[in-house]
């Protein structure tokens, strides 16, 4: 047991030296893991079945860019639909009208809790429930609607939180200038709310990009393959996983620039404030 004066006694090691030692142990552990993985791996096998140079070239030349484009189109449409529907849902959740609030809450809780896979399956079977129903622009209509429904449920909550984060005084200032409630919402609240929402909305966009890999459920012709479906098809026909690895890297071609753009936007937005 230490005495009361121990606070004044010099510590044996300074906090700085202790922090340095802890960090050294962490680095040593990391290096050990990397080395162990490197030694135990079958590099020749990895090269053959994951990074076959011939297959990489073949995949890039035959359809990768089209698949990348399709993934982009699927996601963009779903995101725009989701953003519009999500904004509407968020305003319904904040409404004074009870039924609007309840409807929005039920919708959000339902589609946020459901796996995107299930929504896609239900959507592709919709013509069974409504004979004669045809989504416009096949296959885009179905894909966009399904992605939009999944995305809107998530985005609605993000948008609601963003709207609520705008100080009440902003609306009071707008209303006292004679703006109507909807003018105040569109001109004052939403522009500020969207700035707050840029980081979480980016997350949802990236999630949608990945959810777009579920379009295979809808049933596509080769020209409409997205990255994952394209990679899987090529991997199956070549009995080699390399095309799927290439397709996977294709997602990074989309998400990395996106992250950079968003970081720039955030910086610009905070400069304006």
């Amino acid at each position: 047991m230490t005495t009361r004066q121990s606070g004044e006694a010099p510590r044996r090691t300074s906090p700085r030296i202790r922090a340095r030692r802890i960090r050294a142990v962490q680095y040593a552990l990391l290096v050990a893991v990397v080395v162990a993985a490197g030694l135990s791996a079958d590099w020749a096998q990895i090269g053959r079945s994951f990074f076959d140079p011939g297959l990489i070239r073949y995949t890039v030349m035959h359809g990768l860019w089209l698949a990348l484009w399709n993934t982009l189109v699927y996601t963009a449409g779903g995101f725009v639909l989701g953003l519009v529907a999500g904004t509407l849902l968020a305003m319904m959740r904040l409404s004074d009208v009870g039924p609007y609030r309840w409807l929005a809450t039920v919708y959000i809780e339902f589609f946020r809790g459901l796996p995107a896979l299930v929504v896609f399956m239900a959507f592709s079977l919709l013509p069974l429930a409504f004979p004669g129903l045809a989504m416009p622009l096949p296959p885009y209509g179905t894909v966009w609607a399904a992605l939009g429904i999944v995305g809107s449920a998530y985005m609605a909550e993000t948008i609601r939180a963003g709207i609520q984060a705008v100080p009440r005084g902003q609306i009071e200032a707008a209303r006292s200038l004679g703006m109507s409630a909807s003018q105040a919402m569109w001109r004052i609240t939403l522009p500020q709310a969207f700035r707050i929402m840029i980081p979480p909305l980016t997350n949802e966009l990236i999630m949608l990009i990945k959810d777009s890999s579920l379009v295979f459920i809808v049933g596509l012709s080769a020209a409409n393959f997205d990255l994952t479906k394209f990679g899987r098809a090529a991997a199956n026909s070549n009995v080699n996983i390399t095309p799927l690895v290439v397709a996977g890297l294709g997602y990074l071609i989309i998400t990395l620039p996106l992250s950079i753009i968003v970081r720039r936007m955030e910086a610009a937005a905070s400069r304006g404030r």
Binding site: P167, E172, A173, S176, L177, G178, M179, Q192, R195
Partner: peptide, 29 residues
């Protein structure tokens, strides 16, 4: 809304619109 146009209000916390410059704060309404 029409009635409020004739009544200017100045708040303790200013409540300027942070996403608009001084000129646009005045022109918006």
């Amino acid at each position: 809304d029409a009635a409020r146009r004739q009544i200017g209000m100045v708040f303790q916390q200013f409540n300027l619109f942070p996403h608009h410059n001084a000129l646009d704060n005045c022109t918006l309404a």
